[in-house]
Amino acid sequence: MNQFQYVRPSKAQAAIEAVAKDANATFIAGGTNLVDLMKRGIATPQKLVDINRLPLTKIERENNGLRIGALALNSAVADDKQVREKQPLLALALNAGASAQLRNMATVGGNMLQRTRCAYFYDLTMPCNKREPGTGCGALEGINRMHAIFGFSDKCIAVHPSDMSVALVALDATVLVTGPKGERRIPFADFHRLPGDTPEKDTNLERGELITAVDVPDGPFTKHVHYQKVRERASYAFALLSVAAALDIENNTIKAARLAMGGVAHKPWRLTAAEQSLVGKPATEETFRQAAAVAMQGAKAFKHNAYKLKLAPNTIIQALKTAAAA
């Protein structure tokens, strides 16, 4: 691993300045993704700005919702009483990710910013536009079993690996950031980006911008929720794909619905049209089947991931059925 300078500011402003003015500096939170990437030589920061001593771990009520600090641990959020009561979908998605030990280290901010698990991104001997812009995409003509079926470009077909983010995009969360130019709020759906011509950029965060919290507004999705994750072994693996489903049901009629998928695109993939197709309908398998068909419009597979075109709608139906029965 390369050597680096290490600082541990106690004030957010100092942390932001340290990263804003140095192109080779980066924040470190839990370290579970960054240390991994540094050991492999994929991330080579010259300076690490340790943000763990900043007071950003609280989970509190704020404007009809929950404000979750960027440094709240994944385990702390999943076990939090308010989260389990108000946003059970988020707790389910968190607990579907990684392992108990990793969730004790991983933070909310770091989780959102974890990088893709595309095998070519990890292999320094292979071309990868995300790791080294302009070198080409190894996955496009390579083994692309894990790759995207929505929103990809000819520059990159990778998927975002976060489970938590799939729930947060479904729940209409907002990301609070502070940077050299001040504060801004980014709707969760606009936080991650599609690859386009610049797959090296995973998100719309600018240099030096620090995530301080995520706001999750209260909603009616306190009961009929489910997070369905499909993986190659029973647990402790990244998703082949996943579905976050939340329903508000009254007298067997769907009053409101939220639906998002993970493992299918460069960002957590919200299925707004499918959500709309559910509203006002009875909570039956037929309704769910139709919604799944709407969700899959525009999907396109590569050589090795055509199975996702079948697996995705089936998982959507399964997730909606389980949510309705919850």
């Binding site: 290490y6 541990r8 470190i28 839990g30 370290g31 579970t32 240390v35 991994d36 690490l48 340790d50 763990n52 385990s75 108990a100 030990q101 990793l102 004790n104 280290m105």
Partner: peptide, 12 residues
């Protein structure tokens, strides 16, 4: 709290 000691720097 249980953690994986391989994935964080000691100074943290």
């Amino acid at each position: 709290q249980r953690v994986n000691s391989c994935l964080s720097f000691a100074v943290m």
